[in-house]
Design a binder for these strands. Sequence first.
DNA 1: TGTAATCTCTCTAGCAACTAGAGGTTCAAG
DNA 2: CTTGAACCTCTAGTTGCTAGAGAGATTACA
Lengths: 146, 146
Amino acid sequence: MLTIGKLGAAAGVKIPTIRYYEQIGLLPGAERSSGNQRLYSRVTQDRLAFIRHARELGFSLEAIRDLLGLSDRPDQSCAEVDALARTQLQAVEGRIARLQALKTELERMVGQCAGGSIADCRVIEVLGNHAHCAADHGRDIHTVSE
Amino acid sequence: MLTIGKLGAAAGVKIPTIRYYEQIGLLPGAERSSGNQRLYSRVTQDRLAFIRHARELGFSLEAIRDLLGLSDRPDQSCAEVDALARTQLQAVEGRIARLQALKTELERMVGQCAGGSIADCRVIEVLGNHAHCAADHGRDIHTVSE
DNA sequence: TGTAATCTCTCTAGCAACTAGAGGTTCAAG
DNA sequence: CTTGAACCTCTAGTTGCTAGAGAGATTACA
């Protein structure tokens, strides 16, 4: 049996995240030690690894909930699982396409900046006037955090 | 002078979003009619268009705040603006690269699914076992919502 | 001028998917 | 047996909005 710290280290998931997954029902309530600390089995470790991997692939927690539900019924048809994966693939493809349009526009902006004063800055200019855009970069608004 | 509804329609921004931008100080407090309704000038419309466009390009509201602050000082150097745009460009490039790794893996998963039962499903199998992954798709976790 | 429809107001609460912190308990090593 | 790391619960915060309640303002038409 693993403590929550060992489990987190093994699966690459932070401790509060594990508790959060339990809270929202993605992970079952853990066994407890005599002192009320959570104890996990291999089965839970596999389940958590599954969740983490699916998260890395961009599946939402809701989609993962479905996937886990399906994987608990191994004699059913694969069709639903396949559909979820295909949906995810399409979403990723769409996102790549939009990001590439953004990239093009950002490159144009940066390339045109001659390093003068802000009054002549192409970046500010382009941001202020959508008509400058070469491509339609759509309405898909997503912050890129980094 | 525009009411908030007209402004929103003109700029493609929803009404609560405009009020939200005012609340967090991205837009100045609007003039008010005798009945306390917000009234906007062309200047604010331009500012809102700028914000929206920058959001579409993936700039965070904090970055936009910086950009707006810089654009209010048109005689200063363009360097800071340029740096913000370059940072944004790098972030977008990084995100594209990671998404492409995800796409590759999702394609492999979907391609291997023979349409049998879940017990034999490659998608479930791959999700459960990271060792199946061809590429390292990294730890950058982001839900693709759609 | 009346009134009905549409806007707008403020305020609070909610969404995803966590993350951070306070204040207290339990466990393992020496 | 003590120290310090790891654990517990609980609340609140993050980003960028969105939704709803309940009230007031404005506009269009008769």
